[in-house]
Every structure is written in structure tokens, then in C-alpha cells.
Write a protein that binds this DNA or RNA. Structure first.
Lengths: 199, 199
DNA sequence: GTCTATACACCGATAGAC
DNA sequence: GTCTATCGGTGTATAGAC
């Protein structure tokens, strides 16, 4: 092994990255401490120098990875577009993100389920963050298109998160891009029923 | 142990049931062959007499459990109700089903993710079945309310499955029944945008 | 056919040399 | 601080008595 002194914070970061890589490529069940240190090129003992336990690493991984989620739902170029168009483009952008790295989203799902069983409050925090991101995007999109929501924005946000979750699960299962695009268009049309022009 | 001869088919059934019980209560990761036979009150050797491997049992469990899914989405009493009302009642019925046995749905999710990694075609079959059930329910509900769908029914069905998946995941995470009901109402309103009166 | 006993790989975690 | 070596435990699967 590479008998080199590495600051513990850096080691922890490397182990977190390695753990996510292993989970994404081979699943949470295969993410043993040994598999993680092999991925990171460290010895097994270094793992337990940086973390007390595998469980501690996984819990930290959940919070880290959730915090890193970006509001990728809003398209960059928004001028002159309708809200329905923004919804379609936003969801399509998410689909592209999913297609570009399916294993990443699958890893997120596995971590969520692990969290539900072992640390429910972490899972709740993760979903709270998703809903905040969705709320902000929905609010901004409405504001920029002279529209407002007829039901409370958090409720629409929750529904939008349902749609992205469903999109993720179903696409991971059947990889049917055409059906996914059709569904996105239908979802956007449906969501428009929850809006009205700004008075 | 209970040195009694049991037909192999019966043993397989008992092991499948026991496996699902263990997965629901303690998670797929905890569903070792030892845990399963303990739940079933058998010896470990009986497991490998009935199944070649743990993996074979899990694959069979996925197909069995999927086939047993019922179209619980349609309310029983439908006369004189609007389509929107039917959608609300159907989704609320699903929420009640989820609240009554959360661990069951969590087990289904864990099995789905296992299938995505190990036998994608099984997962695809599972979701295909969900979409068929949803399609049939949507078609019937529209027919009974003098309505028709403006987009292809399979597309609406896919969206509806997204909503139930999202409902499941988010509710398992935050157990917020009030928010779930608000979201169901919003989803029903939104879906109505995909209908028109029958000509 | 059904059991007990066991083989053998891998797990998380730690002791102790350096 | 970082390593190698090893502990005690559990995993899947099987051998062999009955």
C-alpha cells in the first residue's frame, strides 16, 4: 500500500467518492468496506481510521450526496417561453440527466431506501430538499410567465417530485425513452390545469 | 426440526411467504437464507432442497408477488360520481392501502431495485403489469363517466403509475398524510386536463 | 426427504508492528 | 498514521447420517 500520510478529511472524501462509485456500479449490497477501500486504493485499516463504521460512512454519504443535488429542473434559456414549455423542457432535462447517468440515480434510490430503514430522518431531510428545489423552480417559472398557481406551491412541488420519481423508476425499469417523452408532455399539460393567469 | 415430509411445492410456497415476511419487516439485506428458514420453521438444508439458490427464490418471489397485485385503484361504488371524484377516491384508496401496510410496499420497492440489477426483464414485466392495471382502470372510469382521454390511455396510465410511485416513496419517507391528500386532489385536478367529454 | 454438521468465502472491525 | 494479519461472526451451499 501507498504508505503516504493523507489528511483525514481528504481520506474521508476519497472514501465517500469511492463508496458512491461502488454503489452506482454494483449496488449497495456489494458496497462492503473491502470493496470501497479497493476502489479508493487504500488499506482496510485506513477505512476504520477515517470512519468508525460502515454505517457512519453511509449516513454521511446520504447527507453529502443530497446536499449536492442541483436544481437542474429549470432550463437555462427561458425568455419568451410558456410555462407549459418550461415544464416540458425542465422534465426533459431531467430525463437527459437520468439517461446520461442512470446508475447515479439508481444509487440515490438505493441510498434512500437504506435511509428509510436505518435513519428515517435523513430520508425525510433528503425529500424535504427535493421539494424545496421543486418549489423554487415552480415559483420562478410561474413568475417569469405571468402565471400563478391555483393550489399551494408546496403541493404542486410534491406532485412534481412524484412525477420525477416515477419517471426515474419506470425509465430505469424499461428504458423506454419515447414513452417517457410522451409522459412528460402529458404531465406538463396536466400540471397546467393547476395554474391561472396572474391577475 | 419437524422431520415431516412436505411436498416440495408446498415447501416452496412456505419459503416464498417467509421470505416476503422477512423482507417486509427487516429489509432485503436481512433476508438471508438462514433468516428465511427460521421464519418458515425449517432447516437450512430444506431450503436448498426446494431451491437451488437464494437468488432463484428471490426471482420467483418477484414474479409471484407481481402477479398477485390487484387493481385496487378503482373504488367499488362508482355510480353517479365524476371522473375527478373517481380519481381522488382511487388514489385515496391506494394511500389507505399503503398506510395499512407500509412495509409491504417498501418490500415491493426493494424487490424492484434488486430486479433492476439482477434481472431487468423481471422488473420490466412487473411495471408492464402495473401499467396494464392502470390502463384498464382509466379506461373503465372514463367510460362510466361519459368522458374520454385526449392522450393515449397508456400514456395517462404511465403518468398515473408515476404518481402512485411518487406517493409511495414520499409517504414512506415523511408519513405526511395531510400533504399526501392535498397532492392527490391536485393530481386528480391535473389529470382532468387530459380528458374531454365524450362526443 | 429431512436433518445435523460442516466447508469455505466474505463480512465488519481491531491488534499490533512499523 | 498506515500498514499486515487476524479475530469472531455470518453468509451460501453441501456432505453425509438417518
Amino acid at each position: 500500500m501507498a504508505r503516504v500520510r493523507i489528511p483525514v478529511a481528504e481520506r474521508r472524501g476519497a472514501l465517500l467518492t469511492a463508496a458512491f462509485t461502488v454503489i452506482a456500479s454494483r449496488g449497495l449490497a456489494a458496497a462492503s468496506t473491502r470493496a470501497i477501500v479497493a476502489e479508493a486504493g487504500m488499506s482496510l485499516a485506513s477505512f476504520h481510521y477515517a470512519f468508525d463504521s460502515r454505517d457512519e460512512l453511509l449516513q454521511l454519504l446520504i447527507t453529502e450526496v443530497t446536499a449536492g443535488e442541483q436544481a437542474a429542473v429549470l432550463p437555462a434559456e427561458r425568455a419568451g417561453k410558456s410555462l407549459e414549455q418550461l415544464l416540458i423542457e425542465g422534465l426533459t432535462g431531467y430525463l437527459e440527466h437520468l439517461r446520461a447517468d442512470p446508475q447515479r440515480e439508481q444509487a440515490m434510490l438505493e441510498l434512500t431506501q437504506y435511509a428509510i430503514r436505518s435513519r428515517p430522518e435523513l430520508a425525510a431531510q433528503q425529500y424535504g430538499r427535493y421539494q424545496e428545489i421543486a418549489s423554487a423552480a415552480l415559483q420562478l417559472a410561474a413568475a417569469e410567465t405571468g402565471t400563478c398557481w391555483r393550489v399551494p406551491v408546496p403541493t404542486v412541488a410534491r406532485l412534481l417530485v412524484h412525477v420525477t420519481d416515477g419517471l426515474t423508476l419506470t425509465w430505469l425499469v424499461d428504458r423506454d425513452e419515447h414513452a417517457a417523452r410522451q409522459t412528460i408532455a402529458a404531465a406538463a399539460t396536466a400540471l397546467m390545469a393547476l395554474t391561472r393567469p396572474r391577475p
